[in-house]
Design a binder for these strands. Structure first.
Lengths: 91, 91
DNA sequence: TTATCATATGCGAATATTTGAATATGATAA
DNA sequence: TTATCATATTCAAATATTCGCATATGATAA
């Protein structure tokens, strides 16, 4: 049994095991977005957006770049995410 | 925002957000297995195997059929699981 | 510098997950 | 029926997750 690989894989699933994070990732599939964009798109408060983003960052799903005052988040592996979410559309 | 679909998707991810459940599912990709088979393949105790299987059942990942004394578990959507796990091998 | 916009962090309460231990239930054979 | 193998459930303790609120930090402009 490949424990390390299974931990990595379960960790990936864990990153996306919350509906808000699925929604954030779905939005990021359309392109880079800053925190306040995401806050508007999803009706949750700003600290909560930041918390979910930091989970996605810690689990290596997203990264960000500074753009002026803003922090713009993007998917590190958009093709992977897109393929997996597409596969799950039929659920 | 498609809340219901996101809940279904996050629920799927949640089902696989534990390394033991990834391992169980990986074993089931090779074919139907009963509880005691899984218990032997993974070094955890029997109640814990049953608990993880009941989570996978509740989240619609597996189902089972009786075979004599045994309950044999199998993946409900093996192709989907296979595709997703394959995509994550590069992690 | 100070003001302001943008984002992150700390904290606590509520809730959920995970586990082992003990026990219960179900299926089969004798 | 009873004995036994196979699996599930219950419970409690430990740990983790989630959220809102308050506050802190970072970046920029004036």
């Amino acid at each position: 049994m490949n424990t390390l690989k299974n931990k990595k894989i379960s960790n990936f699933f864990n990153a996306l095991s919350h509906p808000v994070r699925v929604e954030i990732v779905t939005e990021l599939l359309k392109g880079t977005k800053c925190v306040s964009d995401i806050k508007e798109l999803i009706a949750i408060n700003q600290p909560n957006v930041s918390q979910h983003l930091s989970i996605l960052k810690a689990k290596n799903i997203v990264d960000w770049q500074q753009e002026g005052k803003r922090k713009c988040y993007f998917l590190k592996k958009p093709k992977l995410i897109k393929n997996i979410l597409n596969a799950l559309q039929k659920l």
